[in-house]
Simulated scan of single mutants.
Amino acid sequence: MKFDSTGWQLITEVLSYAAAAEQRMSEQQERISFLEQLSVTDELTGIPNRRGLRSALGQTLSAAARHKETGVLGFIDLDDFKHINDVHGHMAGDTVLRFAANALKQHIRPSDVVARIAGDEFAVILKRCTAAQGLKRLRTLQKHINKGIVNYGGATIPVKCSIGVQAFDGTTDPAELIEAADQAMYHDKQTRRGAHLRTA
């Protein structure tokens, strides 16, 4: 089949339009992926937020059911955080939150998950471990945070935290798991006697 100049021009325009449409679709998909990532990421610390935690926890429990694995969910709450904000200001509080997030990220495995789920509350999913192993690792994370000192505006701010640990397996309900870890953390905050462990 032969094409005259008009035919070739039409083909060129069609190909150009198709290439432009493909580029727009690619850019749109990138934007969607970016917005999806933003929706599960804490803006201040750069780690997953509560929505991100729920997504990761659902995937973790599904994998635990398939492979008959166990793990633990840890809740971590910074002690006297309101006092830090009241005395040193919210910018100092933000610095403390970033310190805690970084301390947690640096001392977990790549397969584990750390998230900021509320103002001064964090959660850690420790996969493929026993309840005793998870408790030991959460206590180690607690020690890393409790050794922390944040310097801000000439002030030296000690950082302390309380933890709660809840073991899980493939049969654990995610909502009940979150509630149990949260209650264990508040128990620890009240008693100041280390992590309070409940088994699934």
Rank of each mutant, 00 (worst) to 15 (best):
K147F: 02
T199R: 12
S62R: 12
G148R: 00
A64F: 06
V72K: 06
I149N: 10
V96W: 02
A123P: 10
T140D: 12
P158V: 10
G148N: 10
V96H: 03
G74S: 12
Q9T: 11
E43K: 14
G74T: 00
L104I: 14
N151I: 02
L126Y: 08
P158K: 04
Y186G: 06
A195K: 01
G71I: 05
A181H: 04
D112Q: 08
L135P: 00
M91E: 11
D4Q: 06
S16L: 04
A21H: 01
S162P: 12
A64G: 04
G52N: 12
E36Q: 15
Y186H: 10
M25E: 15
T191N: 13
P110M: 00
G194E: 02
A65Q: 14
A115P: 07
T6H: 09
R54M: 13
V14H: 07
A155S: 14
L104F: 00
M25N: 15
D120Y: 00
A118Y: 00
Q190Y: 01
A64M: 01
I76H: 00
A20Q: 13
K189E: 03
F99N: 11
A175Q: 12
P174T: 05
V124L: 03
R116Q: 06
S16I: 01
I108V: 14
G71S: 09
M185Q: 12
I84D: 04
M185D: 08
N85P: 05
I117E: 01
E30V: 02
F75D: 02
